[in-house]
C-alpha cells in the first residue's frame, strides 16, 4: 500500500532522514521506533505532505532550505510531492504528536471540522464509532477541547483523524506524555480501529514497550537511518533493542 524508497530529507545541510526505505501492506500495523530527534517526525511529515507545505512556506520567506530526495508511492501512485490536502483526499491522515486539537472549539466541533472532506452522513457514523471507542469524549462533547486533560486530548486527536476517514492512518508519538494506564487504553483503541475499520496503521513511537509486541513489523531508526527491522515480537527479543528501549 505504501512504499518509501531511498528517502532523504535535508534541513539546510543537516541530514534528518538518510536513505530510508520501508513499506506498509494493506491492513497491517507497522511501527517506526526511535528516540528523540531520530527522524520519526520528519518521516511522518514527509508521508503526510506537511513537509511539502513547510518547504514551500520556508521558500517563500527565504528561510530554511529543505531538500527532499527519494520516492514515496501510495497505492501505485507517486505522492512524494503532493500537498497535504490531496493526500487526505486519497486516504492518508496524520495525527501529529503532542495531541493537536482545536482548543477553542468544543469536542463535537473538533470532530465536525475533521469531517471537512467527508459527507455529513459519513461523519455522523464515524463520530458514533469514535464515541464508542472513547466513551469519555461523549460525556465531554460540549466541553472546550483546550480544557481536556492530555490523555483526553490525545483521544480526541485520534478521533479527529478517524473522522477524516483514513485508509492509511499515521500516528506520531500517540503515547507521549501519558500515564501507563492511558497508554494501555490507547494501544487497545489502536487495535480496535484496525480490527473494526480495517485501517492500515503506521505508528512512530519512542515508548517501545507497550506497542512493540503488537506490531506486524517494526523499523528501528537512529539518526535518520534504519538500524534494525523485523517483526515486533522478534525485535522484543533482540538484545540491542532491549538495551536501548527497555533498559535491560
Amino acid at each position: 500500500m505504501l512504499q518509501v524508497s531511498h528517502l532523504m530529507v535535508f534541513f539546510e545541510n543537516a541530514l534528518a532522514l538518510n536513505d530510508f526505505s520501508m513499506e506498509v501492506g494493506r491492513g497491517e500495523l507497522r511501527g517506526v521506533i526511535g528516540s528523540n530527534s531520530a527522524g520519526k517526525t520528519t518521516l511522518m511529515h514527509a508521508l503526510s505532505g506537511l513537509l511539502i507545505d513547510i518547504r514551500i512556506k520556508e521558500q517563500r520567506r527565504g528561510g530554511e532550505r529543505i531538500t527532499l530526495m527519494g520516492k514515496i508511492h501510495y497505492e501505485g501512485e507517486e505522492i512524494t510531492h503532493l500537498p497535504p490536502h490531496e493526500r487526505v483526499q486519497r486516504g492518508i491522515v496524520l495525527c501529529r504528536e503532542r495531541h493537536p486539537i482545536f482548543p477553542e472549539s468544543d469536542v463535537l466541533e473538533n470532530l465536525k471540522i475533521a469531517g471537512y472532506l467527508r459527507a455529513r452522513e459519513e461523519t455522523r457514523r464515524s463520530m458514533e464509532f469514535v464515541f464508542d471507542l472513547f466513551p469519555v469524549l461523549k460525556s465531554f462533547r460540549r466541553k472546550r477541547a483546550g480544557f481536556l486533560s492530555g490523555g483526553e486530548q490525545q483521544m480526541l486527536a485520534i478521533g479527529m483523524a478517524i473522522v477524516a476517514a483514513p485508509r492509511l492512518l499515521l500516528l506520531d508519538e500517540p503515547l507521549l506524555g501519558l500515564s501507563p494506564a492511558m497508554q494501555r487504553h490507547l494501544v487497545d483503541a489502536v487495535q480496535q480501529i484496525r480490527s473494526e475499520r480495517g485501517t492500515t496503521i503506521l505508528i512512530a513511537e519512542q515508548f517501545a514497550r507497550p506497542i512493540l509486541p503488537l506490531l506486524d513489523y517494526a523499523y528501528v531508526i537512529e539518526n535518520g537511518m534504519m538500524t534494525l527491522s523485523g517483526a515486533g515480537p522478534e525485535l522484543m527479543e533482540n538484545p540491542e533493542v532491549r538495551a536501548a528501549y527497555f533498559g535491560v
Binding site: S48, L50, D53, P83, P84, H85, V88, Q89, V93, L94, C95, R96, P100, I101, F102, P103, E104, S105, E109, K112, I113, A114, Y116, L117, M160, A161, A164
Partner: peptide, 20 residues
C-alpha cells in the same frame, strides 16, 4: 468550520484535508 480550524491550528487543519 474550516475557517475555525485554520484559525486555531493551521497544521492540524491541513492534516484533516483543509487547504490552507
Amino acid at each position: 468550520l474550516a475557517f475555525r480550524g485554520i484559525a486555531q491550528d493551521e497544521h492540524t487543519a491541513m492534516c484533516l484535508g483543509i487547504h490552507s
